[in-house]
Amino acid sequence: ERVRARYDYEAQNEDELSFKKGDIITVLEKDDGWWKGRNGKEGLFPSNYVEELE
């Protein structure tokens, strides 16, 4: 599954994923509120910062 970033997100910890608004992220795992994904790097990000691609 792929999602698009709705906002910029700056990683707060080294296991998190940074991205810019409009970036496409491949979702690897979904957990409550935090998803694991890849966009060149791999890490956790808040699920409310992304939207599913149509």
Rank of each mutant, 00 (worst) to 15 (best):
Q12T: 12
L17H: 01
E10H: 11
P46R: 07
L28N: 02
E52C: 11
V50C: 05
V50Q: 02
Q12V: 09
L28C: 07
A11G: 10
E1P: 12
R6P: 04
Y49P: 02
Q12S: 09
S47L: 07
G33S: 12
E42V: 15
K20H: 09
R6S: 08
R2S: 09
K36W: 13
I25A: 03
K21V: 11
P46D: 07
L44C: 11
E54V: 13
L28A: 04
S18N: 07
K20D: 03
L53H: 07
S18A: 06
E52R: 13
R6G: 05
L53D: 07
F45A: 00
V50Y: 01
I24D: 01
E10R: 09
E54D: 13
N39K: 12
E16T: 04
E14N: 11
Y9G: 03
N39G: 09
D8W: 05
G37A: 00
G40N: 10
G22S: 05
N48A: 14
L17R: 01
D23S: 07
S47T: 07
R38N: 10
N48E: 14
E10C: 14
G37S: 01
L44D: 04
R38S: 11
G33T: 13
P46C: 08
L44A: 08
T26Q: 11
Y49R: 07
Y49T: 07
R6F: 06
L28W: 05
Y7R: 13
R6Y: 04
E29R: 10
A11T: 04
K36F: 15
E16N: 04
Y7E: 10
Q12I: 08
L53S: 06
R2A: 09
E14K: 11
L17A: 03
I25R: 02
E29D: 12
V3Y: 14
G33W: 14
W35P: 00
D32E: 14
S18C: 06
F45M: 02
K30G: 02
F19R: 00
T26Y: 13
T26M: 11
V27Y: 01
G33C: 15
I24R: 03
A5M: 04
G22L: 04
Y9E: 00
L53G: 06
E29Q: 14
L28I: 13
V27C: 04
D31I: 15
A11D: 01
V50F: 05
E10L: 12
S18F: 03
D31A: 15
K21C: 08
I24F: 09
I24P: 00
K20M: 09
Q12Y: 05
F45Q: 03
K21L: 07
L17D: 00
Y7M: 13
Y9H: 06
Y9D: 00
L53W: 12
K41C: 08
L44S: 10
I25G: 01
Y49L: 14
V27P: 00
I25M: 05
L28K: 03
K21I: 11
E29I: 11
A11V: 01
K21W: 05
D23P: 02
Y9L: 02
K20C: 10
D23Q: 08
Y9W: 07
N39A: 12
E51N: 05
R38H: 12
S18Y: 03
Y7D: 08
K21G: 06
W34R: 08
W35Y: 08
S47K: 11
E10V: 14
K41Q: 11
D15Q: 13
